[in-house]
Nucleic acid binder design. Structure first.
Lengths: 234, 234
DNA sequence: ACCTGAACACCGTTCAAGT
DNA sequence: ACCTGAACACCGTTCAAGT
């Protein structure tokens, strides 16, 4: 984790080593503990030395995000655009799950990094090669949104939110206040026969939403939908 | 903007005034310039005074997010679940557009605030009242994702990204490198007759994706879809 | 010419000293 | 008992002094 903290004869620093150490530090200790000073220390180097390879912290984060996005496997190909999109997105998701801090950092970038541009370009190409018009492709990309990159904001996480102050009674109070949420959290399965116990499978939810979007796009495409005339759907 | 900077006789501080000042400061100067010290100064108060009303900065942000989410109009009702969901989500979007910092802050919260819980609860109720099973409602909420709260990560913004160093030639270089993106950015309309010039209408894109999801959910609902058996769609 | 320690202008938060 | 200035342990980044 700490790379050769002995003085002298450290490997010469370069941008790639700085970025890789940043990724490793964020992976291990969380993005909130990534500071220029801490990263320098991790590399056995004086803080100022980093500024030789990276202009400032913001561009360090750009580079780290790029490093992660570049890991997405874009090699999927074939005649079925839906399958190709699906495989790339699921590859993106696997990458982003390995670097939990990355979605937050990607979102906070002001502009897209080169790897993001490359990813978007290849994804647009898949829709176009599948016969989508430029117009529909444009809307499709927006519809996919952050799901394209393998993440989507989860607004709540339905694992037990029992804090330190009281478990059962706090949960009961919440159930009384927000009965619909409690109903969902209670199992999401007491009106189906067999799915009891599966409280929330993130992967399933992700693919459910992904397929909902892909199926909807497929229907629009088959129907020859364009943004002029048909309004907004149905 | 600066509230009574004259010394003496300032209105007594309370939590609500602190939160409102925080929201105003973030609206005016951006979330990155919201610091405890700066906020205190804005209120004509010593930094330590804030800690009487808010335990720390993180909970200040919780409170600010809550203040914003509480502004969403939940009064929409009727027998058409889709219309009700749509109206609430578009109200959420209007609120979030008034407070550009809010989506980022909401995402960065570790747990949902009371106003978010109330919003989610009422939205779940709308699906349930529309006849959705608990199971399908659960997946529907995940599928809507952050779009429920009126925002969705836009991974790129297709307005001209010509930086200070070179306009046209930089753009041409980008077009050569990412031809599919350039094609989309170039107008998104040269294969339709009349929509020339509308480069990207955020509101349209938002509603397009929203309706794609709502239409897909409607079809699943009509079909009596459940998560057991039918796999993941179509 | 290169490198780097000290310094600058900030942070969020603690704590002891003052009233 | 209450309030608050100074202090602590940090930041990112600049810059001048040292080699």
């Amino acid at each position: 984790m700490a790379q050769q903290p002995e003085a002298g004869r450290r490997a010469p620093l370069n941008k790639e080593r700085v970025l890789r150490a940043g990724v490793a530090l964020a992976d291990d200790s969380g993005i909130e503990s990534l500071s220029m000073r801490r990263l320098a220390q991790e590399l056995g180097v004086v803080p100022m030395a980093l500024y030789k390879h990276v202009p400032n912290k913001e561009q360090l984060l750009d580079g780290m995000a790029d490093t992660v996005v570049a890991q997405i496997d874009l090699s999927a190909s074939g005649s079925d655009w839906k399958d190709v999109v699906r495989r790339r997105v699921l590859s993106a998701r696997r990458v982003l799950l390995r670097h939990r801090w990355a979605s937050q950092v990607i979102e906070s970038r002001t502009g897209p990094t080169p790897a993001v541009l490359e990813y978007l370009d290849s994804m647009i190409g898949t829709f176009r090669d599948g016969g989508f018009s430029v117009d529909l492709t444009h809307h499709a990309m927006h519809a996919m949104g952050s799901r394209l990159l393998g993440f989507s904001q989860e607004l709540f996480d339905d694992s037990g939110s029992a804090g330190p102050n009281g478990g059962a009674e706090a949960l009961a109070a919440m159930a009384a206040k927000y009965p619909r949420i409690a109903e969902l959290a209670a199992g999401a399965a007491h009106d189906t026969a067999s799915a009891v116990g599966r409280s929330c499978d993130d992967q399933f939810e992700f693919e459910f939403a992904l397929d909902l979007l892909l199926d909807g796009l497929e229907k629009l495409h088959q129907r020859g939908w364009t943004s002029t005339g048909s309004g907004s759907g149905a």
